[in-house]
Design a protein around this nucleic acid. Sequence first.
DNA 1: ACTTTGCTTGAAACCGGTTACAGCAAGGAG
DNA 2: CTCCTTGCTGTAACCGGTTTCAAGCAAAGT
Lengths: 341, 341
Amino acid sequence: MKRKMTIQEIARLAGVSKATVSRVLNNRGGVSPETRRKVEEVIRLYSYTPNLVARGLSLKRTSSIGLIVAHTAERLSSHLFFIEFLRGISAILDERGFRLIVATAESEDRYETSCRSMAEGGVVDGVVVLGVRRNDKRLRYFLRAGIPVVTVGRPIGFPRVDYVDVDNAGGARVATEYLLRLGHGEILFINGPREHTASLAREKGYRAAFRALRREVDEGLIVYGDFSFESGYETVRGFLARGKAPSAVFAASDLAAMGAITAFKEAGIRVGHEVSVIGFDDIPYAHFFDPPLTTVRQPIYEMGKEAGRILLLRLEGDTGSERLHKTFPTQLIVRESTIRS
Amino acid sequence: MKRKMTIQEIARLAGVSKATVSRVLNNRGGVSPETRRKVEEVIRLYSYTPNLVARGLSLKRTSSIGLIVAHTAERLSSHLFFIEFLRGISAILDERGFRLIVATAESEDRYETSCRSMAEGGVVDGVVVLGVRRNDKRLRYFLRAGIPVVTVGRPIGFPRVDYVDVDNAGGARVATEYLLRLGHGEILFINGPREHTASLAREKGYRAAFRALRREVDEGLIVYGDFSFESGYETVRGFLARGKAPSAVFAASDLAAMGAITAFKEAGIRVGHEVSVIGFDDIPYAHFFDPPLTTVRQPIYEMGKEAGRILLLRLEGDTGSERLHKTFPTQLIVRESTIRS
DNA sequence: ACTTTGCTTGAAACCGGTTACAGCAAGGAG
DNA sequence: CTCCTTGCTGTAACCGGTTTCAAGCAAAGT
């Protein structure tokens, strides 16, 4: 454990001033070639690296951005979303020398303090907020502190905040139309939570599909869940118990779709033969499932990358005041859980 | 976007000096009750929060710790491990007001720079290293820089580095014995990569089970994979193609077990009826699988928590020079992929 | 020979906190 | 009434960088 070198010591050893060392470190001009060489020599010799905290204080930017996760104890589907997203954003940040600070919290009040300290402590230059809600309190902290924000999902109530999103309505519509075209008249729609913006958009898509094919929506077939396996499982069990077996299910998450399929299986109904089920997300397990799941793929990794790109663009400041955003298309991945009716 | 307050301005507004404000902020003694009240009043009024970067520079600690992930583009099994682990460690760090910086990298050389800057830039007080290998280069950086390290998995070659681990040998032994006791004579062992320490320990456990029951190990039944679905799938396909259908499989990961099961299914062999398969990990999908997977559970969340605890203990400094470590027990979770032979 | 120009360099201020130390007032002991 | 605590507070140095500004100096221009 060598003691940590400072710029001052390097300067002394190279026989120059701190200012010159700083110029060399940051490739500023105005240093003679020989001085530069000499300083670089000393830096290499002592394998000096500048203290990033001190640099951060001086520059008022830290080259790190925060990733604000809704709740640590979130559901599995969120986990898989999270990990893919993380990979995407890391790829970009890493490339540009930025660090990623992940903020999570077990409880609601801890969450607040965690957000506040991140917003006001000057430890991050910008943040990406996952699982944004209507009039999200968290956003206010960051905006008030003047920290650039990119949300994942359209931030309703914040018309100027940058975001990345996925075409939820379009994806849901394509999936629903696919089922309708397969000849399924009644499609049970197991949606996410009512307050979730994504849920609303997906419901819109579901209805649009019926409208496009001039069919009536049976309101009794729209059910709100929470994206979980259990919500799919219980919903289908409930329908089967009441003797109302739907011929097709469109679930707003792959997990819920898997739950639905499991319920059908237990009732001896073969999915992909007698009934069709479509999920949403295309989580990595979707194609290992039995039957392999037909689903609507979200390009989560790409969304992570794009969120990172937008944030960095903002940080570099060469953007106008126009809102930056990108909505990604979805893709229907047809596997074996769907069949012509 | 209000301009950010500094301690100086608060001091001026409260009619005291920076030092006094600092004392109030940190609950130091030696401040009269009325002064304290006055300062707190001003702080609240302007909802001032101290700049954590400046504090970090002054204190030479930043209250943030790094989580070093092997590679971003790792396999799915690692992902699920990662997310659970992250939840665990976050729970602890969060409780103690620490931030988590996640270091990942797409390529090997970026990875190096990322580690180095984290080790030497003074941005983290300590690190947790995931997926540690023999004589891991990364550890050297951190140790050289005097940064406390906790590894996940026993760090071979570093006898003084703290770690958390799971009883890989014990878990593998229990699983293997369970299969042997079910009457399976030949157990195909689809292990992880040879160089992985966990793989070695699991193989040891596999052999120990045979020895305990006075049976011979058939060396041809020990195969090295990479924990992936594909490695399980291909291995079983290979065996079936050569007409050597094993009656039981023990896979070193749930993913590999699922791959094996899929291969059996495709060959028309019913797992949980004709053959038995046991996995390792107990990933969240294990019980949704068809058949629900018998597996060896690792307490990943708890391991995350413990890693955090150990690291914080180290940072508080009130520990001796003794190595801190904890090895967690595994638990055999019997579901429906195993059957008496 | 004297000014101008341009390049290189260092001194010093600054970023926003923490803390050692000294000063000062009030209260108690002798 | 003096001396000594004791408690509160402010001054100033420090953490380790960046950056402004002025100065030094050599080459070029007049």
